[in-house]
Nucleic acid binder design. Structure first.
Lengths: 153, 153
DNA sequence: GTAGATTGGTTGCAATTGAAACCAAATATA
DNA sequence: TATATTTGGTTTCAATTGCAACCAATCTAC
């Protein structure tokens, strides 16, 4: 008769947590603006990097390449982002926010930042430190390190 | 020109982390046994509680009720779990592992436990403590507390 | 009791997803 | 230079998902 303590099992706790956080946050922008999680990630990445290719977004967000491809297509249709054909390599397109995109992202950003701020506000500063350090350590061993160390999935 | 530091944004880091961990773990059992994440959760919950209803699994795993419903159907077809009609309330069925289910889960469990153990082994004991405490704190404020405090989504 | 609301669970449907096949451009090998 | 391999990205297809409508059993209010 196999026992199992699911409630204390790390992978499970992580996934439940992330599901909850992502969904609560997605409520904020998916209603008011018509975008989903992949689009949000693309926008945020482009806001951070100013310009980059789809591949770079795939690597840094660890989202499936077809999901990013479709997100890019949708955002391009909506006029939030645009492609600058880099003449170096005609396979890849450099992406960047359009003025509309910047403006829209400018609206979403404070909402999302407020969400995270509210979350942090409910935690003790000790807990925040622990969480950040713990996540950082886990990222490191999973080679999810900050940005560039990421390999294609 | 909106800046945004996605790489340090908590919700994003959590989701990337959880995605990575869940997928690596799912590789372990989805190949050898023919089950997905929902099935795994149902099995683990039943192994922990011995008997419970689908509703209880929904609450404790925070997985959508239709997902659990379908998972239960699949596992029942495969003969891994069975329903005991509780004569109290004819809407709900008490679920439990069959002998086959127990045996199969008994095979999966050590693999999955090894996965978590290997993960922990790569972390310093300080990091483990931080991670656990941090996650616990976040669970608390999201009311993801252990088990019973969970409300229907 | 009976009408109405609630609850546990299922199902139909549309949307999202990931894997794999694919395409065109670029690079390596010959 | 021709050929093969790799690479960035798209698309097709099947599977999974979540929402909403639904069903049957229970509970509530009259």
């Amino acid at each position: 008769m196999p026992e199992f303590d699911l409630q204390n099992f790390l992978p499970f706790r992580l996934s439940r947590l992330s599901y909850e956080v992502s969904n609560r946050m997605a409520e904020i922008y998916s209603d008011q603006f018509d975008i989903g999680i992949p689009e949000w990630r693309i926008l945020a990445t482009l806001a951070a990097k100013k310009q980059c290719t789809a591949k770079a977004i795939v690597a840094s967000t660890r989202t499936h390449k077809s999901t990013i491809s479709r997100g890019v297509a949708r955002l391009t249709e909506n006029g939030w982002i645009e492609q600058i054909s880099s003449r170096q390599d005609k396979r890849q397109h450099l992406l960047q926010l359009t003025d509309t995109g910047k403006s829209k992202f400018g609206e979403i950003k404070p909402l999302v930042e407020k969400f995270e701020k509210d979350l942090r506000a409910k935690l003790s500063s000790e807990a925040i430190g622990q969480l950040t350090a713990g996540i950082g350590a886990l990222e490191k061993i999973l080679e999810l390190g900050s940005a560039e160390s990421l390999k294609e999935k």
